[in-house]
Each structure stands twice: as C-alpha cells, then as structure tokens.
Design a binder for these strands. Structure first.
Lengths: 145, 145
DNA sequence: CTGAAATTGATAATCAATATCATTATGTAA
DNA sequence: TTACATAATGATATTGATTATCAATTTCAG
C-alpha cells in the first residue's frame, strides 16, 4: 500500500544523504503518514508527544524539513501565517479551497485554470515555475450555521 | 489627480475614526502614494527615514495598518514570508506574476480564471470570500540572463 | 565492541510583528 | 490664545514562529 511506499522513499533519502536512522523520526513519519490532514507543526508535535512523551519541538521542525527534502511533503504557507505540511506522494498538483471558519482544506484541480495561467504567463513573457491558488470562503457545513 | 483622491480617502478615514493628523503619517502616505511598487515594511521605513530621520519602525507598522483599514492598501503575504503593501485605490481586483529572481510583481487579471474559480467553489458548496493566485517564475528579462 | 558522526532535547538566538509606556503633538472648547 | 483631554510617536519590551547552538546520547560501520 501507499504508506509502505512512502516509508521507502524516506528510507532512500536517509541512505542517500548518509543520515542515520532514529526512533523519533520513525514516530513522526508514522504520524504524518497516518494523517491525511494538512498538519501544522504544533499538531504534529502534540500527536508525537503522545507516542513519544520526551520528544522535543526542534525535532519536529528538523524532521519536517527532511520530509520536504525527501519529496514526501511540502510546506504550505497560508494567509494565517501558520505553516502546514501536506502530502506529496500520490498527490498530483492541486490547489486549495480553505474554509475560514473551520479551517478545512479541500484539494481541488481544474485543468482549465491551469491552462489559463500558462497563457497569462506566456503573454507577459514569464516562464512559470510554480503557482499558488488559494480560495478562501465558507465550506458547505459552516455556511449553514 | 489620483494621488489627491487617495489623500482624501485617508483624511476621511482619520476624521471618521476620530484620529489626529500627524506629520509622520503625511510623510509615509506621500512615500507610499509616490511608489507604485509593492513595498515591504522595511522599504517603506528606509524611504521614510530619508524624509523624516527620526521616524520609528513602529510608526511604519501602525501607519500601514491604518492605510489598510482606510481601504488605501492591502497586505500581501507571499512565499518568502515578507509582507508587502499594495495600492488598492484605482486598482481593481488582480492576481500576481512574481519573478523569483528580481522580485518584480506584475498585476494580472483573467476573467476566465475568475469564473472557473467560482465554479470550482460552487461544486464544493463553498461560498467564496476571497482568493489568492500567485504565479511564480522568471520574468522576461531575467530568463534571458 | 569501539569510535566517528548523526540525532536529540533543551535552550538561546533571530526575525517579523505587536504591545507597552512615558513623552510629545494635536485639536477643540472655553 | 490657553488649557486640557486624547491621539501619536519613538524607544523598547514582548510575543510567536522558526532556526541555531551545544552537550549528551544514539546509531552503525569496521
């Protein structure tokens, strides 16, 4: 299954970089893989602390950076200024619908939008490397309340 | 001309909020209006210091907040984590093409993209309040170098 | 088993942004 | 014009997120 594959990706990265294996990293990786949410550093920390009480905040930061470097995840900096990590493996490019009330993230794709973006860039002579599209609003359940 | 209009908008705001007039604010406003760039707080500060040597960093922050509250400008939080302020008066909604090399900001609009965003949101039951689209890449002159 | 090197956790440092506070500037009412 | 209530300023402290430092611990190849 996918989780296995992701563990391999990270193991490869550790090997490639001549890093060493560690219990804490395993713990954090398991937690990260189990959650399909866009976790904040603090959420990761709170979860990790349950599994490994002595774990330090700095380890979460360091490990998240490694996850990103290995291609497993990506930092997401949103309007609220809080960094979140989102899964990359098995997730093709997508944008986000973000509920400003409950904080829910929905991943969306629209090939039409992608195409128009490319055109826009071409018109200005830009060579696009990446883009960021965030749609803020109220989600289905929050707008009813 | 437009600058005059913007000064009026801010004066109205000051009156409405029962604030007081101040020399420093005038200075910062003039600098902000003169520049069509997306200034960072630090850039604003450096420019203001030339015109009013004793000016404090905190005053720049406070004043920028007032500009935003008055509707003159808007905070822009980008990937690099640095906040920039952009003009709002006379600038209808737009997105940004951002050069990752020289830092240039180009304002763009595409009604097609806007429409597709609305559709996307509707499909998910979202009520959109705002969105953010940033296209990162190399601008025409930077890609030649 | 041993030692070189990576990892950890605690803590200090950094950086942007905000809050505090004594002093100064502003504007209105007398 | 003066007096006074209050807003604004500048210096500085504080916060909150993130990164750097460092001694102690863990990992792993030989």
């Amino acid at each position: 299954m996918a989780r296995k594959r992701e563990e391999e990706i990270f193991a490869d990265y550790v090997r490639r970089k001549n890093l060493k294996h560690s219990v804490q990293r395993d713990t954090i990786l398991k937690i990260f893989l189990k959650s399909e949410k866009h976790l904040t550093v603090d959420e990761l920390y709170q979860l990790a602390k349950k599994a490994a009480p002595g774990i330090g905040y700095a380890t979460i930061y360091r490990t998240s950076k490694h996850f990103c470097a290995s291609g497993l995840c990506r930092e997401l900096k949103c309007e609220d200024g809080i960094t979140r990590y989102e899964h990359l493996y098995g997730h093709s490019h997508h944008d986000h619908l973000i509920c400003t009330k409950c904080g829910k993230f929905i991943e969306v794709v629209d090939s039409g939008i992608e195409k128009l973006q490319e055109e826009l860039a071409r018109k200005e002579g830009f060579m696009l490397t990446k883009h960021k599209l965030e749609l803020y609003g109220l989600c289905k359940s929050c707008r009813k309340k």
